[in-house]
Measured scan of single mutants.
Amino acid sequence: MQAFVKTLTGKTITLEVEPSDTIENVKAKIQDKEGIPPDQQRLIFAGKQLEDGRTLSDYNIQKESTLHLVLR
């Protein structure tokens, strides 16, 4: 499924993900596309910070959801 990641600069990245993907996995995909190390990434969805060990389905993130990427 497709999900979108919006950065603070307003850029939107499109990712191909599965509901079973972990947040860690998603961060690795963002690193592949953008070169941002996962340890600098914080992903926010519905106002919550997403934890590495959880999956997209844990957070009820469905296709075409938009996550927000904040860098630390």
Rank of each mutant, 00 (worst) to 15 (best):
M1D: 03
Q2F: 14
Q2H: 12
Q2G: 05
Q2C: 09
A3L: 15
A3E: 02
A3H: 02
F4S: 05
F4R: 07
F4C: 06
F4D: 03
F4H: 10
F4I: 09
V5I: 13
V5W: 02
V5D: 01
K6P: 02
K6L: 12
K6C: 11
K6A: 07
K6G: 03
K6T: 12
T7W: 12
T7N: 05
T7E: 03
L8H: 14
L8I: 13
L8S: 15
L8V: 13
T9W: 15
T9C: 13
T9S: 13
T9N: 13
T9G: 13
G10C: 06
G10I: 02
K11C: 08
K11M: 10
K11S: 07
K11V: 08
T12N: 05
T12F: 10
T12I: 15
T12M: 12
I13V: 06
I13S: 02
I13A: 02
T14Q: 09
T14E: 09
T14V: 14
T14R: 10
L15R: 00
L15I: 14
L15V: 09
L15C: 02
L15A: 01
L15G: 01
L15N: 00
E16P: 04
E16C: 14
E16M: 14
V17C: 06
V17M: 04
E18F: 14
E18D: 12
E18L: 15
E18Y: 15
P19F: 08
P19M: 10
P19S: 09
P19L: 11
P19D: 06
S20D: 11
S20N: 12
S20M: 11
D21A: 06
D21H: 05
D21I: 05
D21E: 09
T22Q: 04
T22D: 03
I23G: 02
I23T: 05
I23H: 01
E24K: 13
E24G: 12
E24I: 11
E24W: 15
E24F: 15
N25M: 15
V26F: 04
K27N: 00
K27W: 03
A28W: 12
A28N: 11
A28S: 11
K29T: 03
K29I: 06
K29Y: 07
K29F: 06
I30L: 07
I30Q: 00
I30K: 00
Q31M: 13
Q31L: 10
Q31Y: 15
Q31T: 10
D32K: 13
D32S: 12
D32V: 13
K33H: 10
K33A: 13
K33V: 12
E34M: 15
E34G: 06
E34P: 01
E34V: 15
G35T: 03
G35L: 04
I36G: 02
I36D: 02
I36S: 04
P37A: 09
P37L: 07
P37T: 06
P37I: 05
P37D: 08
P38D: 04
D39L: 09
D39P: 07
D39R: 11
Q40W: 11
Q40N: 10
Q40R: 13
Q40G: 06
Q41A: 04
R42A: 10
R42S: 12
R42Y: 13
L43C: 01
L43T: 00
L43I: 09
I44F: 15
I44H: 10
I44V: 10
I44P: 00
I44W: 15
F45Y: 14
F45W: 10
A46V: 06
A46L: 12
G47W: 05
K48I: 14
Q49M: 13
Q49H: 12
Q49E: 15
Q49S: 11
L50D: 00
L50N: 00
E51G: 04
E51D: 09
E51A: 08
E51M: 11
D52K: 04
D52W: 03
D52H: 06
D52A: 07
D52P: 06
G53V: 06
G53Y: 11
G53K: 12
R54Q: 09
T55Y: 06
T55M: 10
T55S: 08
S57T: 08
S57M: 12
S57F: 10
S57E: 12
S57P: 02
S57R: 13
S57H: 10
D58T: 05
D58M: 06
Y59D: 00
Y59L: 05
Y59W: 02
N60F: 08
I61P: 03
I61S: 03
I61Q: 02
I61F: 10
I61W: 06
Q62R: 11
Q62L: 11
Q62W: 10
K63A: 15
K63R: 12
E64R: 07
E64Q: 10
E64I: 06
E64L: 10
S65G: 07
S65D: 12
T66N: 05
T66M: 09
L67G: 01
L67N: 01
L67H: 01
L67A: 02
L67Q: 02
H68L: 15
H68Q: 10
H68G: 05
H68W: 15
L69E: 00
L69A: 01
V70L: 14
V70C: 09
L71V: 12
L71G: 06
L71A: 08
L71I: 12
R72A: 13
R72Q: 12
R72P: 11
